[in-house]
Design a protein around this nucleic acid. Structure first.
Lengths: 193, 193
DNA sequence: ACTGTCTTTATGACTAGGTACTAATTATTA
DNA sequence: TAATAATTAGTACCTAGTCATAAAGACAGT
């Protein structure tokens, strides 16, 4: 694997940075081989650039993503719950980050907004378990990376086992989303309505 | 930290399993200390139960979640894209797992279904970038852990920069969800409609 | 050609967090 | 009390490194 003439120190170090960003799970031996330098040289490079050793990279990725996966997928509620009156209303805040956006446009993917709205609406309902029946939603404005989404949910009506919740989300006091949710509590039989 | 009399081997091993599930980032020394046994005993336990060493656990979590975070958050599409005719229709499949469900009821959280539907609908549109404008959705049946969601999206109309897409999701040929999405392409100015 | 500096490579001692194995000690039970 | 199970101790070895020191190679300026 002898590449073009071997790169200069600077080029090599820059390429190294990229490589590790792309795939952090290679050890010094493999990295050294791919640059066709000795393992010591590669280690000097890592030192100079402050790139941690493989096992620490594993730790970082593992712990970082552990949190992430927990808070993203396992969370009862998407965003941070600020205020809640069970059976009445609730407020949550979601800080948008780059993982929620399309890289090209920096616009936040719709389902993150939906998730915040739905999970907050669900939290407001004073029943053990509920299931989204119908949702009528509208995105009023595109939401950009870094926007802080403030969601307000209000339980507007209960009819039988159906709970009607309205959610409004705004960024800087300007409304960007509204949604009407109907949740069906599962205490009794749930089938076609 | 002397607990109640020290547990039996069986109890200890069961507890160990749980502990590692909860927090996989402890080394043998720490684990041994928390059970008040020697490090060798703890290692025997790990051997007997087939629990890998700390560094391998790091590797597993790192690599598993790396994939997960990439495919969950960064993914262009939620689920696996099976078929796609740009500007016409598309099909995707999403296998539900326990992270998508409420632990108590094993019912899949609504926003996962929504995400599958929205992202598929988006993929069908033959435009560079789009943004969900309005969605009218209905969950027809609860979806349980392990259900395989088959989503079919169809572009039904284009009017100006608005794209109308219908999505149906079914489990075992039975429809469980339908949604109507309107996407607005961003090629020109996007504001109130 | 010689010197000085940068870069690369080599070498050895040491570390964490183990595996794999043997042996000895302590508890429990028949 | 003897047999069996569970626990602890100890050793050699492993990986993927760190840290420090030294030596060799490359290239420029004089």
């Amino acid at each position: 694997m002898s590449k073009r003439k071997r790169l200069s120190k600077k080029e090599r170090q820059e390429k190294l940075k990229e490589m590790i960003k792309e795939d952090p799970f290679q050890n010094d031996e493999e990295l050294a081989a791919s640059f066709d330098v000795s393992i010591q040289t590669l280690r000097l490079d890592r030192m100079e650039m402050g790139i941690p050793e493989l096992r620490e990279r594993f730790r970082n990725v593992a712990q970082g993503n552990y949190e992430k996966v927990r808070s993203m997928v396992g969370a009862e509620i998407v965003g941070e719950l600020i205020d809640l009156t069970l059976g009445k209303q609730g407020i949550s805040i979601l800080e948008t980050n780059e993982e929620m956006t399309f890289k090209k446009t920096n616009i936040v993917r719709g389902h993150h907004i939906f998730s915040q709205a739905e999970s907050l609406a669900m939290a407001v309902i004073d029943a053990d378990v509920a299931l989204t029946g119908v949702a009528n939603i509208k995105y009023l404005k595109p939401i950009y990376l870094g926007d802080k989404l403030v969601a307000k949910a209000e339980l507007v009506r209960i009819r039988g086992n159906k709970h009607f919740v309205h959610v409004k989300i705004s960024v800087n006091q300007k409304q960007v989303f509204r949604g009407k949710f109907i949740f069906v509590s599962l205490s009794m039989d749930v089938d076609e309505e």
